[in-house]
Design a protein around this nucleic acid. Sequence first.
DNA 1: CGTATTTCAGCCTTACTGAAATTG
DNA 2: CCAATTTCAGTAAGGCTGAAATAC
Lengths: 159, 159
Amino acid sequence: MARPSNRRTRGGVTGHPAPRLSYVLGRAEFALRRRLGEALSPLGLTLPQYTALSVLRRRDGLSNAQLARRALITPQSMITITTGLERKGLITRVPDPAHGRILRTLLTSAGDRLLVAADAAVDAIEDDMLQELSSANRGRLLDDLKSCVRMLGAGFVDI
Amino acid sequence: MARPSNRRTRGGVTGHPAPRLSYVLGRAEFALRRRLGEALSPLGLTLPQYTALSVLRRRDGLSNAQLARRALITPQSMITITTGLERKGLITRVPDPAHGRILRTLLTSAGDRLLVAADAAVDAIEDDMLQELSSANRGRLLDDLKSCVRMLGAGFVDI
DNA sequence: CGTATTTCAGCCTTACTGAAATTG
DNA sequence: CCAATTTCAGTAAGGCTGAAATAC
């Protein structure tokens, strides 16, 4: 029941074996996170905060618990993010009229304006990152990464 | 000086805009890191420890400072990793004969055996992750991710 | 003296679990 | 009573900077 391996042959006489895909994926994400952090810091945003704002632009009115599920973190962790965003006036949290306990999270106009600026910065970094790849390859890279996420059982990919 | 954007059109009348590549890359790395952590935990290894062992298999005898540079972290952070590995007998650290201050890090036979078992677990997870991708697409995914790392200015990709 | 390595100490970010209060 | 949400508290992992000792 030998499962065919995806590894290239190791220990060939010439050259180094190919680095593991997990390793390169981790390295890419690490480098990207560093660059994004540097770009977002002058705007007063952390990467998790930017991600939460991006989700809210399209899913305005989510509760803190719903936001946490989208980000695959616990509600307790998401609280630290939303608290920071609320303190800066980028979001407001209003009680749901039908469910007194639930606080609906809404993007403020200041939050929307900051998000536009942040998106421009992130676009520039993505363009840097992808400058060697053709448009077709960029599309394929996105599709392949989505497939990886699905196969890893991480649920939805959409923001 | 409009730079052509790599973003798909947002806000079309039908359907959702494609999620951002940064987002999907981060989601893939997050899901992978979780799965790897779960697989390595029964072996008593953390992901950073596994990475350090993998580097040492091919670059045996690196100093702690050299290991840190390979992993793009500070020597102070790497010390916490190598200390843990040494306490478990997976590595030994011997003074360099020519430089009394430098400690060369060597994989022990126990460390090598554990690394073989860990590799099998990681292979299985990578196979899960890539099961929808053809062999050609896997190779292209690896190459494209390497290109991303280079373009992000993160230095070498090789372990 | 300058550079590199090692390592102690303290701190920060970001996640986690546990537990309690509120609401439907 | 049960389920979901919110949120306070404590904890842990993993990174960081500063600083000191050692060695060439």
